Computed example of a mutant assay.
Amino acid sequence: MEQRTHYFLAVRIPEETKRIMKAHIEKIKEVHRFSRWVHYQDLHITLAFLGPANPEKLAAAEINVEDVLSDTKALKLKINKLGIFGQEDSPRVLWADTEESTELKAIRKKVFSASERAGFQLETRPFRPHITVARKWTGAHPFQMEQLEIWNKLQPEPLPFQASEVVLYQTHLNKTPKYEAITLFPLQT
Rank of each mutant, 00 (worst) to 15 (best):
D67V: 02
V38W: 00
E30R: 15
E66K: 11
E103F: 06
N152V: 07
L9K: 07
T189R: 10
G83P: 02
P177F: 02
P129R: 06
T138I: 05
Y179L: 05
S70E: 10
L148S: 02
E157D: 10
Q3H: 04
L43D: 02
Q144M: 07
E99A: 01
A181L: 02
H6S: 09
F120N: 00
V11N: 03
A74H: 07
K136R: 14
E103D: 12
I28L: 09
E103Y: 13
A134Q: 12
T132E: 03
Y7M: 03
E100C: 00
L50G: 01
L148P: 01
D67C: 03
V133R: 05
K81W: 07
D71W: 06
W137F: 14
K109C: 05
F143Y: 15
D42P: 02
Q188N: 12
L104K: 07
E99Q: 13
A59H: 09
P129M: 11
K81A: 10
V65Q: 06
F49H: 08
E88Y: 04
R33W: 06
H39I: 06
I25E: 04
S90W: 09
F49E: 00
P177L: 07
E2T: 15
E26H: 09
F34D: 00
N64M: 08
L75N: 01
A61N: 12
P14W: 11
R135M: 08
T17F: 00
S164G: 07
